[in-house]
Amino acid sequence: MTAAAARIERAGLALLRRVDPETAHGLALTALRAGLTPAPGLISSDRLRTQVAGLHLPNPVGLAAGFDKNAEALLGLSRAGFGFLEVGATTPLAQPGNPRPRLFRLTRDRAAINRFGFNNDGMEAMAERLSTRPRDAVIGLNLGANKDSADRAADFAQVMAHCGRHLDFATVNVSSPNTEKLRDLQGKDALAALLGGVIEARNGLAKPIPVFLKIAPDLDAGALKDISEVAIAAGVAGIIATNTTLDRTGLTSSLASEAGGLSGQPLFERSTHVLARLSLLTDGRLPLIGVGGVGSAEQAYAKIRAGASAVQLYTALVYGGLSLLPEIARGLDRLLARDGFGSVAEAVGTGRKDWL
């Protein structure tokens, strides 16, 4: 990225932070669609190329769900240097989500709180947009359930059946704190039934795809053990750890008391502890994707050494812009080389004991 381009991006970020966060997010998506954002293209190397659940990734740094809820900016995002993209969450029927305001910047904490409530255009619109997706990118969909659904477990399978043919992977999201009682589906029996339905729908596709499970960071040791056992038994391809948290420990912002899920830097340690514990519980039987507070190459590397085969980020882009992505990917390459690792896979779990 040239110095001039960096100055333009910094100026753009400063302007966006002067408007309502959700409006700013919409403007960022508009800029992506218009080709007005950094587009370094493929970022890869022999060290960064890796495989996760059969997916061939040019690098292990992905975009977390929630940034592009409705797959409106896939081309721009696919040129931004990510190793993979996750869009959504998507529910069977379109729904408006919770009333505004529902997104809050916690600038002093480099964090955000959201209570969107699965606002999205629904699976019909999502499938149409995914049908024209870039074919040279690895793209997955976060599956959700409608707020007023009589059978939320069935909703996940329905979205899979409708959109699966356009995807490289799908994620079962039972960990959002913003849909009432959704996290109840993380219980052992409920989760087993839900995953069974999604896997059955996946098996009905002409080309079956990996299914990941995204979990909350607010789970105790017993719940993590149950989830890992259910995921392995159900045939899930991997676990994404973690979604946003309800915890507010250590925040300094005046907006800390807003309801919703907290993401960003304050989540890093909490989510990485959960990741390391899952790594111990699964013992190499499932790949893990580390999410929560990734905002630098060092933090991405820490997630990998705690047990993640790949990482995702979102909130850090609010503060660092899309140019942060190539910085993290290339910085990760240097860190791997510094420590004598020939690949991402060689580094996975090598620092797990530091988080247990």
Rank of each mutant, 00 (worst) to 15 (best):
A4E: 15
R7I: 13
G12I: 05
V19G: 09
T23D: 10
G26I: 05
T30N: 15
A31Y: 02
A34S: 11
L36W: 15
T37N: 11
P38K: 09
S44L: 09
R47F: 08
R49L: 11
V52R: 07
L55M: 12
N59M: 11
P60K: 00
P60A: 02
G62I: 03
A71L: 09
E72G: 12
E72N: 10
L74H: 00
L75R: 14
L75Q: 13
L75K: 13
S78L: 15
F82G: 01
F84S: 02
F84T: 00
G88K: 02
Q95Y: 13
P96I: 11
L103V: 07
L106P: 03
A111Y: 02
A112M: 14
N119K: 11
N120I: 08
D121W: 12
E124M: 15
V138A: 03
G140Y: 05
L141A: 04
D148W: 09
A150D: 05
D151G: 09
G164K: 05
L167D: 02
A170V: 12
A170Y: 10
S176Y: 04
T179S: 07
K181S: 14
L182Y: 09
G187P: 11
A193R: 13
A201M: 04
R202I: 10
R202C: 14
K207P: 05
P210N: 11
P217S: 15
D218L: 14
D220V: 06
D220G: 09
A221M: 07
A221V: 08
A223I: 12
E229K: 14
E229G: 14
G235N: 04
V236Q: 07
I240T: 03
T242L: 11
T244I: 10
T245V: 06
R248T: 10
T249G: 12
G250S: 08
L255G: 06
S257V: 14
A259W: 10
G261W: 02
Q265V: 12
F268W: 01
H273W: 14
L280T: 13
L280F: 13
T282F: 11
I289L: 09
V294F: 00
V294D: 00
S296H: 00
K303E: 01
A308P: 04
A310L: 05
Q312F: 00
L313G: 00
L322M: 07
S323F: 03
L324G: 00
I328F: 03
I328A: 04
F341Y: 14
S343R: 10
G349D: 01
L356F: 10
L356N: 06
